[in-house]
Structures are given as C-alpha cells and as structure tokens.
C-alpha cells in the first residue's frame, strides 16, 4: 500500500496524465493557447475529477457493476454541466475561450479512466487524493504548455507583456500546427528529463 503522499505525487510525476499517460489530449492542444486558458481548463477538469471520484468511491458498493459505466457517465456529466454553468455565470470570458471543450470534459479519458481504474476500488479518502494528484498534474502541465505558447506566441505570460517591444511574436505557436509541434517537443523533453532523473 502506498502512502497518501505517494498517491498524490504520482499524478504529478510518474503518472502525469498528459506527459506520461497521454490522456486528455484534445483540450490540452486546444486551450493551451494562453496560460490563463490552460489554467482555467485544468481547474475545471480538477473540479470534475474531484467530484466524480468522490461520489463514485462513496457509491462503489451501491452501484451494480453491470450498469456502472452509464452510472459513471451520468455522475460525470452532472459535474461537467455544473462547471459549465458556474463558469458561464462567473467567468464569462474564460467560458467563451474554452467554449465547447467544457462540455467535452465528459469524454475526457482522464475522468472516466480514474473512475474505472481507481475510484471504484478504493476508499473515498484515497480517491479524493488520487483525483487531487491527477487534477493538479493535469493543471500544471496545461499551464506550463500555456505559458510556453503564450510567451513565444504572444510575448506575454498570464496576459502581462514580458518580452519587450523588440520581440517579434511567433504567430505559429498560437495556431493549430503550433499546438501539435509544441506539445510534441515538450513530450520529448519530458521523456529526456525523466530518463536523466531516473524516474521511470
């Protein structure tokens, strides 16, 4: 049995959903255009993951295993819709920027994957920690990607200009091809670092 701290940190390093498990790529590519969008998407997914893991772990003895998938989908979709509504009400600009990728959190493989692989077999406390770790790992990765694309694509970080006026923004990083290429290179870099640091 691993400790709770290990349970938490695995989501950030060893089983980082984006860089290690390659899950949830669609929103990763689409919304990482700026740091704030990446962060917002990460927090939205974190909330859904937390809620669904919590409820599914709590109900794990109550839901018959034959209908568990539809039950999970129902629960996840509910949390997603709540996030959708709350973002629309309180952070309209972010809601507009994330657009269709908010409802699509429903089919984000991370969420259903954690429900199926973890929450239905573990206690509520462990499931919550697992969700926090995965969510934070997802948020961090998205934010880092967002910072890189925003820094070189627009010359700013979190909307604050940092590169000075002499800097010519690399517009390609803000486009679709830029998203793919940046993530690909990041992935290679992370693989390299993990090998160097001896984390497998």
């Amino acid at each position: 049995m691993s400790t709770l701290a290990q349970e938490f940190s695995k989501g950030i390093f060893k089983e980082n959903p984006i860089f290690r498990l390659l899950l949830g790529m669609c929103p990763t590519l689409a919304v990482s255009i700026t740091a704030i969008n990446g962060f917002g998407m990460g927090v939205a997914a974190l909330f859904v993951l937390l809620g669904s893991n919590l409820v599914i772990a709590a109900l794990r003895n109550f839901i018959p295993s034959k209908v568990r998938i539809p039950a999970y989908i129902l629960i996840i979709a509910t949390f997603v819709t709540i996030v959708d509504m709350v973002l629309n009400a309180f952070t309209p600009d972010l809601h507009k920027a994330l657009g269709i990728f908010i409802p699509l959190i429903v089919v984000n493989c991370i969420i259903l994957g954690r429900a199926e692989a973890f929450a239905r077999k573990n206690s509520v406390a462990r499931s919550v920690i697992d969700a926090l770790g995965m969510g934070v790992g997802f948020t961090l990765s998205l934010t880092i990607l967002g910072i890189i694309r925003e820094l070189f694509g627009k010359g700013s970080i979190f909307g604050v200009g940092v590169m000075g006026s002499a800097f010519e923004p690399m517009g390609i990083l803000a486009t679709a091809p830029g998203a793919f290429i940046t993530l690909g290179i990041m992935l290679g870099f992370v693989n390299f670092m993990f090998k160097r640091l001896g984390i497998e």
């Binding site: 793919f180 690909g184 870099f189 693989n191």
Partner: peptide, 16 residues
C-alpha cells in the same frame, strides 16, 4: 526520447 507519441504529434503539426 521522441519515439512514439512525441514524433507523432510533431508529424500531426506538419500535417495540420
């Protein structure tokens, strides 16, 4: 380091 997903993503970028 680039084998697998990483190089596929870069390829997808060029296709895009």
């Amino acid at each position: 380091f680039l084998r697998g997903a990483a190089v596929s993503l870069v390829t997808a970028g060029i296709l895009s």
